[in-house]
Amino acid sequence: MSMRQIWVAFFTIVTKEIRRFMRIWPQTLLPPSITMTMYFIIFGNLIGARVGEMDGVPYIDYIVPGLIMMSVITNSYSNVASSFFSNKFQRSVEEMVVSPMPDWVILLGFIVGGVARGLAVGAIVTGVSLFFTDVQVHHPFLTMLVVLMTAVLFSIGGFINSLLAKKFDDISIVPIFVLTPLTYLGGVFYSINTLPELWQNISMINPILYMVNTFRYGILGVSDIDAGGAIAAISMFIVVFYILALWLLKRGQGIRS
């Protein structure tokens, strides 16, 4: 395929993916805004008022970046996982497999679709948070970079999950049993400084902690960890996951017999 044809094919997947989550907005865009409003009211206003400050900032301001990041992670992941798996389930994935599109175009198209939903939900949650507090972004570039990289990483994760999944249950196992615990324990609601040393050390092996804290640093200017190291770690994860996803796709894992 020529570069122009590749661009058309890539654009086709991306627009199809964006249209998909926009069309089913009551399932994709509405639930996070409702859930996050509840978090802001209950944890931010009601409980947060009694908590006082966390790492020197009001509790509601502390949890806003964490909740935005949590929404971005779950939405980018589940967008790609459910969309690609439903393509597999209905066998419409064969439309792509028989076409001359290179595998990397298919992968990249779904990643961009997942990133688009992650960022759309992230923007909605940010909008909701403005009803409860003022969000001042201290480092706009770093903030955008880390949220974008996180969305990319979890979109690839969702893609790998959908390739390996054999039934619909398989695409909810990782979000429920891996992503949710890691996110909740990844410093969304608390600073790891509040933990005993042992648990602080254990928390340091949680990759989501680095993403949440780097994002928080971008917005609030406070963090538990080093932002540069976190960006390097996320980059490395992206490269490893991307290579793995492309390899699985090339060998036709879960697609070809």
């Binding site: 020529s2 094919a9 086709t12 997947i13 199809k16 439309e95 076409s99």
Partner: peptide, 10 residues
């Protein structure tokens, strides 16, 4: 139309 897109057809 989507299939056309996969083949790079504008």
């Amino acid at each position: 139309l989507t299939q056309a897109g996969y083949y790079g057809m504008p």
